[in-house]
Computed example of a mutant assay.
Amino acid sequence: MKINIRDAKELDLLLESLAFEIIQARILYRMYCGLIDDMQEYEDDMNHSPGFWHYTLTSLRETSFLGLCRIYDQHAEGLNLHNLLETIRDNPQMFATDEFKKRLKDNKFVESLAAESRTPQSQNIAEHLRYASEENPIVKKLIVWRNNIVAHRGAKLSLGRKDILNERQIPEEEINELLDQALKIFNHYSYLFKASTWSSNAIGEDDYKNCLQLLRAGILQKKQTFLEAARANQKTCADD
C-alpha cells in the first residue's frame, strides 16, 4: 500500500530510512558469512571463548535476517520496499525534470543530469513490485519465517510443527539474491530521484578480520609469557 506523503522532502526521508535498512542488513550478513568462512582458520583461537563467538554469530545472523524481513515486509502501514515502490508509482510528479533541478540546484552537473529521463517507467515499477511481493517465491518463504520466528514465535511452531520452516528453507544464495536485488531496485529509483546511489560495499564491513588477527596475536603473546614464566621458574628451582 502506498504511503501518503505531502512532498518530495518526505519521499527523500523514506528513501533515506529504507537505505539504512538495506545497507545495514547487507553489512551484517556479510560479516556473519565472513566469520563463518574464517572459522576453520581461526577455530583454535575462537575456542578460547566459544560462548562469546556463538552469541556474536547468532546476533549477526538474526539481526541481518530481521533487517531483510523489514525490507520485504508486506504490512500495509510499514516502510518496506513494496510500499515504497507503490508510493513512487503514485507520485510521478515528484520525478519531473523541474522538480529534479530544484533538488539538485547546487550540483554543477544538474543540467547534464536532468537531460536524462527521470520519470520511473511503469513497466519497471510493475516488475519490481512483483519481485518485492509474495508473488516472488523467495519473498513468500521469507514472510513465513517473519511470521513464525522473526517478528514473533508462532504457537504451532512451538508445539512441534517444524515443517512450517523446514519446508521453506532459505539458503545463502537466496538471501544474497534478496539483499542484492533490494539494493539494485532501490538504487534505480534513488538515481532517478536525486542522481545518488548507495555502494554495494561499506567501509568497515571486514573489520572482524582485525579482531581475529588481534585475538590470535594476544593468545600467542599469552602463551609466550606463560612459557617464559615457566622457564624462569625452572631456572630458579635448579639454582636452589
Results as ranks from 00 to 15, higher is better:
Phe109Glu: 08
Lys141Ser: 07
Ala217Val: 03
Leu13Lys: 14
Glu127Gln: 14
Leu165Lys: 07
Leu179Asp: 02
Asn201Ala: 11
Gly160Glu: 11
Ala114Pro: 03
Met1Val: 07
Ile203Ser: 08
Ala230Asn: 12
Ala202Thr: 11
Leu85Cys: 09
Asp12Cys: 09
Leu227Asp: 09
Leu85Gly: 12
Ala230Cys: 10
Leu11Gly: 04
Tyr189Asn: 02
Ala126Asp: 05
Leu159His: 13
Leu220Trp: 00
His54Ser: 12
Glu116Asp: 03
Lys101Ser: 01
Ala229Thr: 13
Ala230Asp: 13
Asp45Tyr: 02
Asn80Trp: 04
Trp198Ala: 07
Ser64Asn: 04
Leu81Cys: 08
Met31Val: 12
Val110Asp: 03
Arg61Asn: 14
Asn201Asp: 03
Val110Asn: 04
Lys140Asp: 11
Val144Pro: 01
Glu86Gln: 14
Met46Gly: 06
Ile143Met: 12
Ala238Met: 10
Trp53Asp: 00
Thr56Cys: 14
Glu10Val: 01
Tyr189Val: 01
Lys141Ile: 07
Asn107Ala: 12
Glu135Arg: 11
Lys223Gly: 01
Leu227Lys: 14
Asp38Thr: 04
Ile88Asp: 02
Glu10Thr: 10
Asp44Val: 08
Phe226Gln: 15
Ile164Thr: 10
Glu21Cys: 06
Lys223Ile: 02
Met94Ser: 05
Lys2Gln: 15
Arg89Lys: 15
Tyr189Cys: 01
Ser49Pro: 00
Leu165Ser: 05
Tyr189Ser: 02
Glu174Trp: 05
Phe186Leu: 03
Ala19Arg: 13
Gln234Leu: 13
Tyr32Gly: 07
Ser122Asn: 11
Gln74Leu: 06
Lys162Tyr: 06
Glu228Asn: 15
Leu214Gly: 00
Ser112Pro: 00
Lys102Pro: 00
Asn210Ile: 04
Ser200Lys: 06
Leu35Met: 15
Ser49Tyr: 10
Ile36Lys: 15
Glu205Pro: 03
Asp90Asn: 14
Ala229Phe: 11
Pro50Asp: 04
Leu179Ile: 14
Lys105Arg: 15
Ser64His: 03
Gln213Asn: 08
Gln234Asn: 11
Tyr191Ile: 10
Leu28Ala: 12
Pro171Trp: 05
Thr87Gln: 06
Asn210Ala: 09
Lys223Leu: 13
Gly34Asp: 06
Phe65Tyr: 12
Leu215Arg: 09
Ile143Gln: 12
Leu178Glu: 04
Ile175Ser: 05
Glu116Gly: 00
Phe100Glu: 04
Ser112Leu: 12
Leu113Lys: 15
Ile175Pro: 04
His54Val: 01
Ala96Asn: 08
Gln40Phe: 12
Val139Thr: 01
Glu77Ala: 13
Leu159Glu: 13
Gly218Tyr: 01
His128Gln: 05
Asn124Tyr: 05
Ile5Lys: 11
Asn233Gly: 01
Asp206His: 08
Ile149Leu: 15
Gly154Lys: 07
Ala195Gly: 03
Asn233Val: 00
Met46Ala: 07
Asp45Leu: 02
Gln213Leu: 13
Leu129Pro: 00
Gln224Ile: 01
Leu66Ala: 13
Lys209Asp: 02
Leu220Thr: 11
Asn176Met: 07
Glu77Ile: 08
Glu174Pro: 02
Gly51Val: 02
Ser133Lys: 11
Lys141Thr: 04
Ile164Ala: 09
Gly154Pro: 03
Thr197Lys: 09
Glu167Tyr: 10
Glu167Ser: 14
Thr119Leu: 13
Tyr42Thr: 00
Lys2Thr: 03
Tyr191Met: 10
Asn148Val: 00
Glu127Ser: 14
Ser17Lys: 15
Thr97Asp: 02
Val144Leu: 14
Gly78Tyr: 11
Leu14Phe: 10
Lys141Pro: 03
